[in-house]
Nucleic acid binder design. Structure first.
Lengths: 127, 127
DNA sequence: CAGGATCCCCAATGATACTG
DNA sequence: CAGTATCATTGGGGATCCTG
């Protein structure tokens, strides 16, 4: 069971911020991509993750690095070369996130069915 | 392996939206709370989840209901009584999300350590 | 009690340009 | 290449009031 001192349901517990980094829009994609590929450069991540801006990628990577999820390795060469990979802690987090991805992929038909039925129910009751 | 037709790394794939609902700020808290408690009323959820507004709770619950994650049962009484619980699909999702919560709780010391070290590294290099 | 409707605003996000 | 700095935008999100 979880420590009583770390309560993510408490608005002011710092764990809430970490949870938000882990589950953030770009954070989840970065984690899963790094879990699959092992190590990627900044520009590789940018290309792999559709729609992410440089700013958001850099910002999200920094948050994840600070939380100990992502490892950042700078190779002192010109032009610059920076590698990103998951820490041990990050791998554990990424695996959980990846479970969500698999769930969506594996049971996609159920998601679509639920959405269609919901929309039909809504459309059927004007007021 | 996952269907090639469901690619969350593709900006325009509808699965991206579902992933964002599942991992949204309030979505993760709702899922875990319902996983723990089974069934809760609107006001119970509101009280259980620190800092959520009525608007965001209603809005997030609707998104999760549409995706087939949350089951909404209305009891036709006065005053109104509405129960929320997880569907089978929702339970699978919630378990994955709960893994993240446990990770944060169990390894919180590592998160804090990483943050402190990151901040020290930053402070050590003025420019 | 469960939410719908409104108003409002700040912060997250993105586009662009620039630098080591 | 790997970012940082700046600026513009908007819509997420909250507060409030109202209703079945």
């Amino acid at each position: 069971m979880e420590s009583a001192l770390v309560d993510v349901f408490d608005m002011n517990c710092p764990s809430r911020a970490v949870m938000e980094h882990l589950s953030s829009r770009w954070g989840v994609l970065i984690q899963v991509m790094l879990l699959r590929e092992g190590t990627l450069r900044f520009s590789e991540l940018r290309r792999a993750i559709g729609g992410v801006s440089e700013k958001m990628l850099a910002q999200t990577l920094q948050a994840l690095e600070r939380d100990g999820i992502v490892r950042r390795v700078v190779h002192p060469v010109i032009p610059p070369h920076v590698d990103y990979s998951l820490t041990d802690l990050g791998e554990a987090a990424a695996k959980a996130v990846n479970t969500l991805f698999d769930l969506i992929g594996d049971r996609w038909a159920e998601f679509e069915k639920a959405q269609v039925e919901y929309d039909q129910r809504k459309a059927a009751q004007p007021l």
